[in-house]
């Protein structure tokens, strides 16, 4: 299957491991829902609703999926429960695939956009700094020169935390003191990247709740200042979402998109019991691709998101 061409075997195993909790429970529940039944009836659909809602898929998206399945049941007349899994998988894949994102190859950047500038944003505690550490590791591994910018000058010891990552990965970092102007840190970082001819710049920002307008405006200021050094930067505004977050993730995606033209998502903490189902709802509502998933605390525990692999891992292969 060509779809795993850029997933090394080791990586696919890791993804399976990270999502196995999700896979098993959804699978088991569906099996339980359909046990002793030979075709899809209202009870099966009710159970399906419960499974999807409890996976954080959200009521709207759940109703949409169920609506599609109902339509198919009505059309095909006799849908056996053995086909339900396949239908469900294809319906979800379709929701995810309605986005026009192309799955980019592993940590490859358009060198026409050198330095390729990534600004990382999100609410508090979703794992922005950790994701940056992992991104830096992966870009470095892919042979790119990387510079980090510590523009979270607000949270206690956020700069120190990023410094530890820069040492761990072995990439330079530009920082100022705590409390300094984040836009100025971003400016310095880009200046340094240009003079050092770096390939990739990753800018950390302070966690901010998306309903705080003042803090959201600060993001556009940081962006504007960066454009003074590198026009059209940041090329990637990566919104980090916590995989255990419920429906509020949709609101986060909405507000951050309004404020900063987010064009990529990262979904973290998928190694826990959280189902990450919210990503389906977000893919359905926004035309922003999920680019990365975080499945652990080590540097290696970051993967490029692949919709098919995600759905396959969610429902098991074949």
């Amino acid at each position: 299957m060509g779809i795993f061409s850029f997933f090394s075997k080791e990586k696919k195993e890791s993804l399976d491991k990270g999502l196995s909790k999700t896979k098993e429970s959804v699978f088991q529940k569906i099996s339980r829902a359909v046990v002793g039944k030979s075709k899809v009836d209202d009870e099966v659909l009710d159970n399906l609703e419960e499974i999807l809602v409890t996976s954080d898929v959200g009521v709207d998206t759940t109703l949409k999926i169920i609506g599609r399945i109902e339509a198919r049941v009505a059309k095909d007349k006799y849908v056996g429960t053995s086909e339900l899994n396949e239908i469900l998988r294809s319906e979800i894949a379709e929701l995810l695939e309605e986005n026009k994102s192309d799955d980019s190859a592993d940590f490859d950047v358009d060198l026409g956009k050198k330095p390729y500038v990534i600004m990382v944003v999100g609410v508090n505690g979703v794992g922005k700094t950790t994701t940056i550490g992992k991104l830096a590791y992966n870009y470095k591994k892919a042979g790119k020169s990387v510079i980090l910018g510590a523009a979270d000058t607000f949270r206690a010891a956020a700069i120190d935390q990023l410094k530890v990552w820069s040492e761990r990965v072995g990439v330079p970092i530009v920082s100022q003191n705590m409390g300094s102007d984040p836009a100025s840190v971003a400016f310095d970082t880009l200046k340094s990247a240009v003079s050092k001819d770096a390939d990739v710049v990753i800018i950390d920002t302070a966690g901010r709740l998306h309903n705080k307008v003042g803090l959201m405006n600060e993001l556009s200021k940081i962006k504007n200042v960066m454009q003074k050094v590198v026009p059209n930067s940041p090329h990637e505004i990566l919104l980090v979402l916590d995989g255990s977050t419920g429906q509020n993730a949709i609101e986060q995606a909405k507000q951050f998109t309004l404020a900063t033209e987010v064009n990529a998502l990262a979904l973290t903490k998928l190694d826990g019991t959280a189902k990450g189902g919210v990503v389906i709802g977000i893919s359905d509502q926004f035309k922003i691709p999920v680019k990365y998933i975080g499945i652990g605390e080590r540097m290696e525990d970051l993967q490029v998101f692949n919709r098919r692999a995600f759905v396959d891992s969610l429902f098991g292969k074949n």
């Binding site: 809602v53 409890t54 977050t245 993730a249």
Partner: peptide, 15 residues
């Protein structure tokens, strides 16, 4: 616990 947590909050709290 983060007040934004989804359905999983109950499982985590229970564990």
């Amino acid at each position: 616990v983060d007040s934004m947590t989804g359905q999983d909050a109950v499982n985590t709290a229970k564990e």
